[in-house]
């Protein structure tokens, strides 16, 4: 399988604190990759560095064969690299359908293309994806009135609406009702298989990530501690130390 994302020695400093210290990781096209690590190990910072939220201090990010580490958020996402946020971000004063419609790939076009009337196809796709995450009966509800878990699902559906090649998910199960987690895992896998979206998932829930990911990278103190298959990572003594030490 070809490499879709290749993070090479990315370093990010905040003042004296090194949040990411020469972090490297690879995501192959079509897989589900996992990113784990104790709190404060630099996972979300790495997401920000990949998606262009702030400048990196060293290293390079290759997406789909081209360097993107000099680009800003907008151009990067338009190449098909989308993300969701740990603290979900949706458009609160717009209905779920409107949230979906404005997240379509076509909405990333220039202003003239936005002035054409809303496309019928996008409408159906929006409804399909809302059913996919189980929010269809909430489609005319304002985003801001949904529960936290529902907002999380909406944000996931919005990300899928933009038809990304690679989707970075920041703790998709945090704040979700435990009884619904299995359903969510199923949806992530179906998004991967049926919609062909490569996933890189930050996750704290070990059970979830071990079942979901084919390949896992573990960060601690801003460095890559271990990487490999779920079994390799699970049995790595350094990973155990990092988690036990952090607790």
């Amino acid at each position: 399988m070809t490499l879709l994302l290749d993070v090479r020695d990315v370093t990010k400093r905040y003042g004296g604190v090194v949040a990411n210290d020469a972090v490297s990781l690879q995501v192959r096209e079509g897989e589900i990759a996992g990113l784990i690590g104790p709190n404060g190990s630099g996972k979300t910072t790495l997401f920000g560095a990949i998606t262009g939220a702030y400048p990196v201090d060293g290293g390079d990010v290759i997406f789909n064969g081209a360097s993107i580490s000099h680009l800003r958020v907008g151009p990067i996402v338009r190449q098909g690299l989308a993300r969701t946020y740990q603290q979900t971000r949706i458009y609160g004063e717009m209905t779920c359908m409107e949230n979906m419609q404005i997240s379509s790939r076509a909405s990333q076009g220039n202003v003239m293309s936005l002035l054409r009337l809303k496309a019928r196809g996008a409408q159906t796709r929006a409804e399909d994806l809302l059913s996919f995450v189980g929010l269809h009966e909430k489609r005319f509800e304002y985003g801001g009135r949904l529960s936290f878990g529902q907002q999380k699902l909406l944000e996931f559906a919005m990300a899928l609406m933009s038809e990304p090649k690679l989707l970075l998910l920041d703790e998709p199960t945090a704040g979700i009702n435990p009884t619904l987690i299995n359903g969510l895992i199923d949806r992530l896998q179906r998004a991967n298989k049926e919609l062909g979206v490569t996933l890189l998932v930050i996750e704290h829930n070990m059970r979830v990530i071990m079942n979901l990911a084919e390949h896992i990278t573990c960060l601690a103190h801003g460095r890559v501690l271990a990487s490999g298959t779920p079994d390799e990572v699970r049995n790595d003594p350094r990973v155990l130390d990092a988690y036990l030490g952090a607790q």
């Binding site: 939220a53 702030y54 400048p55 990196v56 580490s69 000099h70 800003r72």
Partner: peptide
Amino acid sequence: VWRNWRAARRRTYLS
């Protein structure tokens, strides 16, 4: 305007 321009520059990087 100047302050905003400076802040925007901090988000652009490397190039």
